[in-house]
């Protein structure tokens, strides 16, 4: 059983490693982060692979280790959450608890990805071995096991990774540029009063260097999702992380705020480090839609009334 265990663990670990990306979130794109998550990924892949193999050998207690693994992985979510929450106080524009929760979930889910790749490999291997008695007899047990196991594991890897990627703001809404205006001291974007800027020079800087956008949801469900405060904070954080901000701790007037109009349109005004409208809009569009903010009210019985349907 040494060979399938080795290959399954390897496949699962690779699946986990490929999901560790270096990106603007700067997390966990540090060596320590890589080591932590690769180590846990290898462990998950090993446990996933070992489960079915142990069962095949008639060792039922070994399979219960899968349950232990699952509770281990739940702790990953806690660890991620605590780290990000501790860092929150050092952020000029915080991620917000909604975003942190989303990131923590992704880390947990990606460990299950490693486990699933290992699990499906060993299941496939066992199935291949069984097939060697029949249609795949020409290959022998070992080769037919690998022939079934490896593709199955790769399919699980690709499908799961694609499935867990999730939608972006661009999938829910149209993002268009908007002018910044002042109604007295009120910073106004597309008719929405965003904040009261009393300090004259700050107003001038907004007019000269500021950028603003409207985020127009395409459906009622998108409206409800984007209204979520965690989702809005995630947009503000990501945009400032990507295009840079001029503001400092003693200049709260330049904190990016997202406000909502009665029709569900969100508006955002910022003072970017680099004034590039296209980069600004692209930054908003790529913000991930947080799992915890997704609402689909129209799919409920009440929502069907809103769509104009009437039950008999």
């Amino acid at each position: 059983m040494g060979l399938p265990l080795l290959i399954g663990t390897l496949l699962g670990s690779l699946a986990r490693f490929s999901a560790l990306r270096v990106d603007y979130r700067q997390y966990p794109s540090y060596p320590q982060g890589y080591v932590i998550h690769t180590a846990l990924g290898i462990l998950g892949a090993f446990l996933g692979t070992a489960g079915p193999l142990a069962l095949a050998l008639g060792d039922f207690t070994a399979a219960s280790f899968l349950a232990v693994a699952a509770s281990q992985f739940r702790e990953i979510r806690d660890v991620e959450r605590q780290t990000l929450q501790a860092l929150e106080q050092t952020e000029l524009v915080p991620r917000g608890t909604g975003y942190i929760e989303g990131i923590a979930r992704v880390f947990e889910a990606r460990n299950y990805l490693a486990m699933a790749a290992g699990l499906l490999f060993s299941l496939g291997y066992l199935a291949g071995e069984a097939l060697a008695a029949g249609p795949l007899a020409a290959l022998g047990e070992r080769w037919s096991g690998l022939l079934v196991g490896i593709p199955l594991s790769l399919v699980a890897w690709v499908r799961l990774e694609r499935y867990t990627r999730g939608p972006r703001v661009a999938d829910l809404a149209d993002v268009v540029p908007a002018p910044i205006e002042f109604d007295g001291p009120m910073l106004t974007v597309a008719g929405v009063a965003v904040m009261n800027v009393g300090w004259g020079p700050a107003r001038e800087r907004y007019l000269k260097e500021g950028l603003a956008a409207e985020i127009r949801p395409r459906s009622a469900a998108a409206k409800a999702t984007l209204a979520n405060l965690g989702q809005r904070q995630a947009i503000a954080h990501d945009v400032m992380a990507l295009i840079g901000s001029q503001h400092d701790v003693d200049e709260p007037e330049f904190t990016p705020l997202i406000r909502r109009r009665a029709d569900g349109t969100l508006v955002l005004a910022i003072l970017p480090a680099e004034r590039d409208v296209d980069a600004f809009l692209a930054a908003i569009r790529q913000v991930p839609v947080l799992e915890g903010s997704v609402r689909k009210p129209l799919q409920s019985p009440v929502g069907r009334y809103l769509k104009g349907e009437r039950p008999e």
Binding site: G184, P185, N196, V197, G198, W199, G200, A202, V249, D250, P252, E253
Partner: peptide
């Protein structure tokens, strides 16, 4: 303007205009 700006810097706060002569 001067008083408001200096106070705001001091407390890391923000100036808001409620009326022309009342901040």
């Amino acid at each position: 303007e001067q008083i408001a700006f200096r106070t705001a810097k001091l407390v890391k706060g923000m100036v808001h205009e409620l009326a022309e002569d009342l901040w």
